[in-house]
Design a protein around this nucleic acid. Structure first.
Lengths: 226, 226
DNA sequence: TCCAACATGTAACCGGTTACATGATTCA
DNA sequence: TGAATCATGTAACCGGTTACATGTTGGA
């Protein structure tokens, strides 16, 4: 649902075509919100039918016609309302954590390799983001939106902070895993006694009745143990 | 695609029904991977048709019949392969960042309110996660998987670290925003000169040709400016 | 000559959520 | 009496990605 508002946000700067919006997306918000043309075009159409934007065909002789979208007063109002409302927390899904969760099935070296690989990726993306900062600043100045540069920079900051937090977590995890015995890995539960699902579900039931508040809130986002 | 492997992971501990898997999900991986029954049931069916699990109907007199799923050797092999392969980086989408990106449209107080609200949510989820740790440890012990507790704890840790990183970023953002002049906010671009989309797209073109490497990699995850 | 850029779209698919359907038992 | 638990599912929808379709112009 947020794509709608991201588009309104850019249209609030000035009229754009779908094609232009995609380009602007790619250098400005792509690090936390990607969008494909095939999604942008129909979304613009919806915005139009809701009366939040207006479209004017710009007939061109030598190139394909352009559909230029302009935000309406209704659109401005709706954008502002959304911006001021509390942000929904997007659900966080991280495949790496599934691997760590079931890591005792792996060998110690395999787990460490997986962790190192992800850390490398994250380090690379931090480097990219650091370049991204200066690009965003140049861009903001070039188009006369210097005052936006601070806000844009904050979003890049957020990305860097998250990546760094992940890297630090991975480094800590590797240290802990390295301290472990090789024997703790490579378990195949078929060989040991398999877990009895009924027992574990019963156990959950008991834990739940002891601390119901914890289970009630668990759906929010992430927190951790030391 | 990861749901499949998360299910295989639990089935590797021992046979479970779909209903049981949902319960186990909710207390163990829900903080980074939610799953609904309506998704679990068909996924189990697919796993069966792929030969990665086997199903046996457990006829019950007083209650509805249960379908108990057991992992096969093929399933174990596929799980192990996936666990050892590099993790795909899930795309990160954060509505709050869209709000910050377009924050100059808001008033200063509105922006700060939005930021504070999210920080509060995050603080609450950190508290929940801290409880979650002890629950996970109790659970692991109760079902005889003590050695798993460390890995499970690491995933909770990751959640805490992320939330804390977000909180710190928000606190920094609030400090920066508080230093700003009220006049920097509440811009309505219609009143000033709207941005010319063609100029901004041209500018992007030039920035791109100057630093093509940055744009090539930009799709990874997040990094930031100081 | 061939590819990239310009410019707009549709269709199929995919992972996931919400809502709905069924029907027994147990507990407050 | 009515809600919660047990237990399985289907259907509709939603946001998003990938692939496909079309056709021109300009540059390597």
């Amino acid at each position: 649902m947020s794509l709608k508002y991201a588009l309104l946000g850019f249209l609030n700067y000035g009229p754009h075509t779908g094609y232009e919006l995609k380009k602007v997306f790619d250098v400005s918000v792509a690090h936390f919100w990607n969008a494909e043309l095939s999604q942008i075009y129909p979304t613009l159409k919806n915005l139009e039918s809701e009366g939040l934007v207006e479209m004017k065909v710009d007939v061109q002789a030598d190139r394909p016609n352009r559909k230029v979208y302009t935000i309406t007063e209704d659109g401005r109002r709706e954008l502002l309302e959304w911006l001021a409302a509390p942000a929904e927390a997007e659900q966080f899904r991280e495949p790496l954590l599934i691997k760590v969760f079931f890591a005792s099935t792996l060998s110690k070296q395999e787990l460490i390799a997986v962790l190192r690989h992800r850390a490398e990726e994250l380090r690379r993306s931090v480097a990219v983001f650091e370049h991204g900062c200066s690009i965003i600043e140049n861009f903001a100045e070039a188009i006369g939106l210097q005052r936006e540069a601070l806000f844009w920079g904050l979003t890049v900051d957020s990305g860097i902070k998250h990546s760094q937090a992940s890297i630090e977590w991975i480094e800590g995890a590797i240290r802990r895993v390295e301290e472990m015995d090789d024997a703790e890995f490579g378990t195949r539960y078929a060989e040991t006694a398999p877990v009895d699902a009924r027992v574990s579900v019963d156990t959950l039931q008991k834990l739940k009745s002891k601390a119901p508040n914890v289970f009630a809130l668990a759906h929010n986002t992430g927190a951790s143990c030391e």
